[in-house]
Design a binder for these strands. Structure first.
Length: 439
RNA sequence: CGGAGUGUGGCUCAGCCUGGUAGAGCACCUCGUUCGGGACGAGGGGGUCGCAGGUUCAAAUCCUGCCACUCCGACCA
């Protein structure tokens, strides 16, 4: 992408309202724009990151055996009356009437709808287990939205729902999601720690929050620092193997880890110097809730003995829009964002340090063409700005690899390659540059 | 929902206390000089001062109401 043809509205000055780094940087980098309290437009650069996050989420859901569909944002109130949550959910739910005065709502979550879909089609225990998910915008009318997309009212959520015949089956589905979540966050360069959690208004009794540690996290968390050394399961993990999956979950739940609501100071004190008290950001939350929805909503399957039984359910959420902010919280410096490569909006950025130069222009064009030919997503800064300004932009938007093409180094047939993560620079030939970035 | 605050050009803000008809920096447009870490000079465009009412000869400024947004607390992917 040529910057001259892109839409990247950077801000030089920090907007007043932004208190935390990710909000500040997302606004300054031209990733988001506020439309109302807690409601944001994702500008082109922000959308690129959001889509990369979603792609990883999707790949790991699929790997774990979940199946994607897409439910609407607007739901009928009728379903929610069936489960009893139409009254229970309170003011956080945005209620709407259509032109016929029918009660509708903008979905804050989808347990009711997915249960209704399930019961329409699934009759037999032989069709289980089943995990369905979608990635869709949600609306929760938070009392106090804040921190940009970290706590917006409208936010993107991946929500998965599992259906099993009995508790044992549901436990395995829970474990699938548990391990998928560990992998998902790790692939985004995040170290997540599963913590025992309250199950909240969704209900149920088996629940973990996936927390990433960041100084600006919203909640206080306590855990065994040994978690930081745990190895995340590789891509070859067998999600169908009940025992092996259980072993992974057992390991990741063997040590102390709790959010402040579930914190046990006495147990924590026993950890001694291994006790880690920190701030954390909740990026995922998984629940087993048994027959909470299947009973009132009559989502039943016929078992081997010929009798109908309500299914055991669970739900599993990840907030991709929040993750974008969380990744920034975990990876930035004074100059700007430092994207982990898997979620970076572009992998490389070419900085033409002398726009219009007889040597630099053709060198940049050639490099740009060669990078694209290699399939490397590249942003070419071809605007007529001073070098300092280009450096500032590059650092701000945090592209992993910056390629500085200036007359000085070009005289030796070299360009300068700068790695945003560690700040290291290297003079390389264009061919070596491409090889290095491609590797 | 309680408490605090803000609303003036695209952005950051000054002006308000003490009413006299709107400013700065950045950004933008033109020309020139520049160009390896957010350049400089000259010229230029752009604002119903959140909205409505009131007081006054006169309101960005004072009064009343409303709206929006932000921050602190209780709730949440």
């Amino acid at each position: 992408m040529r910057l001259s043809r892109y839409f990247l509205p950077n801000l030089r000055e920090t907007p007043k309202e932004a208190e935390i780094a990710s909000h500040r940087l997302m606004l300054r980098a031209g990733m988001i724009r506020q439309e109302a309290a807690g409601i944001y437009t994702f500008l082109p650069l922000g959308l690129r990151v959001l889509e990369k996050v979603c792609r990883i989420v999707r790949e790991e859901q699929d790997r774990a055996g979940a199946v994607e569909l897409l439910m609407p944002t607007i739901q009928s109130a009728d379903l929610w009356c069936e489960s009893g949550r139409y009254e229970a959910y309170g003011k956080e739910m945005l209620r709407i009437k259509d032109r016929h005065e029918r009660d509708m709502l903008y979905g804050p979550t989808n347990e009711e709808m997915i249960t209704s879909i399930f019961r329409s089609y699934v009759r037999s225990y032989k069709d289980l287990p089943l995990i369905l998910y979608h990635i869709q915008w949600k609306f929760r009318d938070e009392v106090r939205p804040r921190f940009g997309v970290m706590r917006g009212r409208e936010f993107l959520m991946k929500d998965a729902y599992s259906f099993d015949f009995d508790f044992e089956g549901a436990k395995h589905s829970y474990n699938r999601m548990f391990v998928a979540y560990l992998r998902t966050f790790a692939r985004m360069g995040l170290r997540s720690i599963p913590m025992v959690a309250e199950s909240g208004p969704i209900g149920g009794n088996l629940s973990h929050e996936f927390i990433i540690l960041a100084d600006t996290g919203e909640s206080e968390v306590f855990c065994d620092s040994e978690y930081l050394n745990f190895e995340v399961p590789g891509p070859d993990v067998d999600f169908t193997h009940v025992g092996r999956l259980q072993a992974i979950v057992d390991k990741w739940t063997s040590l102390y880890a709790a959010t402040s609501e579930k914190h046990d100071p006495a147990a924590f004190a026993k950890l001694g110097s291994n006790g880690l008290s920190a701030r954390g950001i909740e990026v995922g939350h998984i629940f087993y809730f048994g027959t909470k929805y299947s009973e009132p909503m009559k989502a039943v399957v016929t078992g081997p003995d010929g009798t109908d039984r309500p299914i055991h359910g669970g739900s599993y959420g990840i907030g991709p829009s929040r993750l974008v902010a969380a990744i920034i919280e975990a990876s930035h410096d004074e100059a700007g964002i430092k994207w982990p490569e898997p979620v970076a909006p572009f992998k490389a950025m070419i900085l033409n340090l002398k726009q219009g130069g007889a040597d630099t222009d053709p060198a940049c064009e050639q490099l740009y063409a060669d990078l694209r030919a290699k399939g490397i997503d590249t942003l070419y800064h071809d605007l007529d700005e001073r070098p300092g300004s280009k450096f500032a932009t590059a650092d701000l938007i945090g592209i992993p690899w910056q390629i500085l093409v200036g007359p000085r180094s070009l005289a030796e047939g070299k360009v300068e390659v700068k790695c945003r993560a560690d700040g290291e620079r290297e003079l390389l030939s264009p061919a070596d540059t491409i090889a290095k970035i491609a590797s």
